[in-house]
Simulated scan of single mutants.
Amino acid sequence: MRPAKAELMRPTRQFTRFLAVGTLGFIVDAGTLLLLVSAGGDPYVMRLVSFAVAVSVTWWCNRNWTFRSASRLAWQAEYLRYFGVQTAGAAVNYAFYAGVLTVIGLTALNLVLALAVGSFVALVVNFSGARALVFKPRPA
């Protein structure tokens, strides 16, 4: 494959992998959220905890699979930058999560539905930020 064409396909491959990792992150997020809420935790506060767990899992997977060929900072700095970018996406995610719960009510199924809506809306923010600010392509 010619280099120019390979470069054009790279973001598509990364986005596909980012979606796969995001799916895993969603499962971790939703599972953690449901576990904590079923143990008596407040659904709004526990959402913050489940987010932190999911971000840690997705950072590791994105670092080692989605963006593994990208230049890297020290892992600690990279993790903090990734967490910051994902927090911006999470602000969008959380606003939609809370809004959906306010509209449709609080049940276990609605928790997951609200989480899915928030995750979908924040996807573009998260991918763009991860690609541009955390896992920058290596210079040629």
Score class of each variant (00 low, 15 high):
Tyr94Phe: 15
Leu80Trp: 10
Ala52Pro: 01
Phe26Met: 09
Ser38Tyr: 07
Gly41Pro: 06
Met1Glu: 00
Arg13Ser: 10
Ser119Ile: 13
Met9Thr: 07
Leu123Asp: 08
Ala122Ile: 08
Leu113Glu: 00
Met46Asp: 09
Phe120Cys: 15
Ser38Pro: 02
Val21Pro: 12
Val37Tyr: 08
Leu133Gln: 09
Val92Leu: 12
Thr58Asn: 11
Leu106Tyr: 11
Ser50Gln: 05
Leu106Asp: 11
Ala88Val: 15
Ala122Met: 08
Arg17Tyr: 05
Cys61Gly: 00
Leu133Tyr: 13
Ala132Leu: 15
Ala98Gln: 08
Asp29Leu: 04
Leu48Thr: 12
Ala30Ser: 14
Trp60Glu: 07
Thr12Pro: 02
Arg2Val: 09
Val124Lys: 01
Leu106Arg: 12
Ala54Asn: 03
Ser56Ile: 10
Val37Pro: 11
Gly25Tyr: 06
Ala88Ser: 14
Tyr82Gly: 02
Leu133Glu: 06
Tyr44Asp: 05
Ala122Lys: 10
Phe96Asn: 03
Ala77Val: 04
Leu101His: 06
Trp75Asn: 01
Val121Arg: 01
Val100Glu: 07
Ala20Asn: 03
Pro11Arg: 06
Leu113Ala: 11
Ser119Trp: 12
Tyr44His: 13
Thr58Met: 03
Gln14Asp: 12
Leu19Phe: 13
Ala74Ser: 11
Thr23Gly: 15
Trp75Thr: 06
Ser128Tyr: 09
Ser56Thr: 14
Arg131His: 14
Ala108Asn: 03
Arg10Cys: 00
Leu24Thr: 13
Phe83Lys: 01
Phe120Lys: 04
Pro137Phe: 00
Pro139Val: 10
Ala4Cys: 00
Leu123His: 07
Leu113Gln: 00
Gln14Pro: 12
Ala132His: 14
Ala140Cys: 05
Arg138Ser: 14
Gly40Gln: 08
Arg138Gln: 15
Asp42Pro: 02
Ala122His: 06
